[in-house]
Deep mutational scan, measured.
Amino acid sequence: KVLVLALYDYQEKSPREVTMKKGDILTLLNSTNKDWWKVEVNGRQGFVPAAYVKVL
């Protein structure tokens, strides 16, 4: 399983997205889209901007 680090806070803007806080460790589920990556955080799955996270 691939983990990513949240570099910035992100507030979800649609039901398909998830909120994350800077420093959160998320599970990367899909990174085929260069702009939006699907992650799991706190038991929820959704998209975050790829530029806001870094693969650990």
Rank of each mutant, 00 (worst) to 15 (best):
A6D: 00
V2G: 10
M20R: 00
V41A: 15
V4L: 14
E17W: 03
W37I: 06
A51E: 08
Q45S: 13
F47L: 09
M20E: 00
W37N: 01
W36T: 03
V18C: 07
V39K: 00
L29R: 04
G43M: 08
V41W: 10
G23H: 06
Y10A: 01
D24I: 04
K38A: 08
T27A: 08
F47G: 01
K38C: 11
L28P: 01
L29C: 06
S31D: 14
K54P: 01
K21G: 05
L5I: 11
N42R: 11
Y10N: 01
N33F: 10
F47W: 14
V48S: 01
I25P: 02
R16I: 15
V55E: 07
T32L: 11
D9T: 07
M20H: 01
V2F: 10
K22P: 03
Q45W: 09
L29Y: 05
Y8R: 12
T32E: 15
G23K: 02
K54Q: 13
E17K: 04
N33T: 07
D24N: 07
W36L: 04
E12K: 15
V4A: 13
L7F: 03
D35C: 11
D9M: 04
K34M: 11
W36Q: 03
F47Q: 04
D24E: 15
Y52N: 05
F47C: 08
Y8S: 09
N33Q: 12
S14Y: 07
L5S: 06
S14K: 06
A50N: 03
I25A: 04
V55A: 07
L3Y: 15
K54I: 14
A51D: 08
T27S: 10
N30A: 11
Q11F: 13
A51M: 14
Q11P: 06
K38W: 13
T19W: 04
L29F: 05
R16G: 15
K1P: 14
A50K: 08
P49K: 04
V41C: 08
E40C: 11
V2W: 10
Y8N: 10
L28M: 05
L28H: 01
Q11I: 14
N42Q: 09
K22Y: 05
Y8Q: 12
D35A: 12
V4K: 01
N42Y: 12
V39R: 00
A6F: 01
A50M: 06
E12D: 05
Q45M: 15
E40W: 07
S14F: 07
A51Y: 08
E17A: 07
L3W: 15
R44D: 05
V55Y: 11
L29I: 12
N30I: 09
L5Q: 12
K22T: 09
W37T: 04
K21V: 10
D9F: 04
G43P: 02
L56A: 05
G43W: 05
R44F: 07
P15N: 12
K54W: 13
R44Y: 07
W36D: 02
R16L: 14
P15I: 09
L7K: 05
S31Y: 11
A6E: 00
V41E: 04
K38Q: 15
L26H: 03
R16Q: 14
Y8C: 08
L5T: 08
S31C: 13
Q45G: 09
E12I: 07
T27R: 10
M20F: 12
I25R: 06
L26D: 00
V4S: 04
R44N: 08
T19A: 08
V55C: 07
A51N: 12
